[in-house]
């Protein structure tokens, strides 16, 4: 595997910033991992390659969070305005965590399990560079399929 194609965390997040959901696919056993892994999670082959996912899946479980992580309270979420932390399984079989948007966060009983979702890309400001320009990170999020 060339250095250029090596599966690394940094590249995974760079792909997210380009709004590309890139997992890894094992050429030996066909398993797909998300987030991407250098070693296949099933057969531990070290030949995994980048693989673009459809971004479609279903909601496996979630919680509406009223006392949030600092990364979320900084975005304005609080006891009166909860956000939803979700685990979704992609159509390709792998699962990932993310914020679920586009639902009524304070009515968790009405959010259905196994609801079809699609991936969205969410931006968080994490700091500033030396010139004072904002630094962002991009994360996987979900919304109900339209």
């Amino acid at each position: 595997m060339s250095e250029e194609n090596l599966v690394t965390v940094d590249k995974y997040f760079n792909f997210l910033s380009e709004k590309k959901l890139m997992g890894s696919k094992c050429p030996k056993c066909g398993n797909i991992d998300l987030p991407a892994r250098r070693l296949c999670s099933k057969c531990i082959s070290d030949e995994c390659e980048w693989f673009e996912l459809s971004g479609k899946g279903v909601l496996k479980t979630f919680s509406s969070i009223y006392v949030g992580a600092k990364a979320m309270t900084q975005k304005g979420y609080n006891r009166k305005k909860p956000y939803v932390f979700a685990v979704c399984q992609m159509d390709e079989g792998c699962s990932v965590s993310g914020q679920l948007i586009g639902v009524e966060e304070d009515k968790p009983k009405e959010i259905p399990f196994d609801m079809p979702i699609q991936v969205v890309y969410l931006k968080t400001r994490t700091g500033e560079d030396k010139e004072g320009n904002p630094i962002y990170r991009w994360d996987v999020g979900f919304e109900p399929q339209k």
Binding site: V9, K60, T61, F62, S63, A69, Y77, F85, R137
Partner: peptide, 20 residues
Amino acid sequence: TYEYFAGATFPGLYAAIANA
């Protein structure tokens, strides 16, 4: 790396288990 910015907290992770 992958959970924190998804909004996970410890009560939140166990709440997701409870909800399931």
